[in-house]
Amino acid sequence: MSTGNETESEVAAGHGEHPAFLAHHFHDAAQQKSAVKLGMWAFLVQEILFFAGLFMAYFAFRALYPETWLVAHELLDKRMGAFNTVVLLFSSLTMALAVRACQLDDIKGSIRYLWITIACALGFMVVKYFEYSHKFHLGLLPGKYYSYDGIEGGAPELFFSVYFMMTGVHGLHVVIGVGIMVWLIFGPLRQGKVSSKYYAVVENTGLYWHLVDLIWIFLFPLLYLVR
């Protein structure tokens, strides 16, 4: 198991070279690495298909109420959405650089990039807070809680059901991402478990974070921009 640092005695105890991070059921580090990576990609596929249900709801209701969609999306603040897009893209860059720093054995640099990524994630949530509170104030709420009367066309509450569900679940992913990154910093990175030989834990966090960015890349134009 992966407790403690790699020591001479530990290497001697195993059959041949056996680094601390290598779980006993793997043949070698490369096999462990590819298995861990494949597992992460399978998880990401699940995430995409999970969000696909929400995108399907978007397209289905859009097909049923095209006029409502055109009017309702004008009530979202394009500039706030665009700002958040840039923030999230930048956080993806710093996340990629955090992984790169691990590849270069620069653990301190990796921690620094992760803090920047966390700051971007929190900034994203702050902007979302302002957007949400504005809509709460106007009564642009999902389903039966909808009380705004400035939209002509059928079922405007459906647009906001879809909007809050998609951005809400996406926001939840952002918050979970922050939690994982904080854990990464105070856990594996600070405890010296990560090096250029073993950084799968940082890499997989990166893949998760980039997927959150990827989802937003589609959410932003579909919700805020499309006419």
């Binding site: 298909l49 696909a52 993806s92 980039h210």
Partner: peptide, 26 residues
């Protein structure tokens, strides 16, 4: 993002296939 930030360009071809399968099912 997938090609460079997520390193799919340099990843195992099988992982690319797994990733693309999501879009097929979608």
């Amino acid at each position: 993002v997938a090609g460079w930030f997520m390193h799919l360009k340099y990843d195992a071809r099988f992982n690319v296939l797994v990733f693309l399968s999501a879009f097929w099912f979608m």
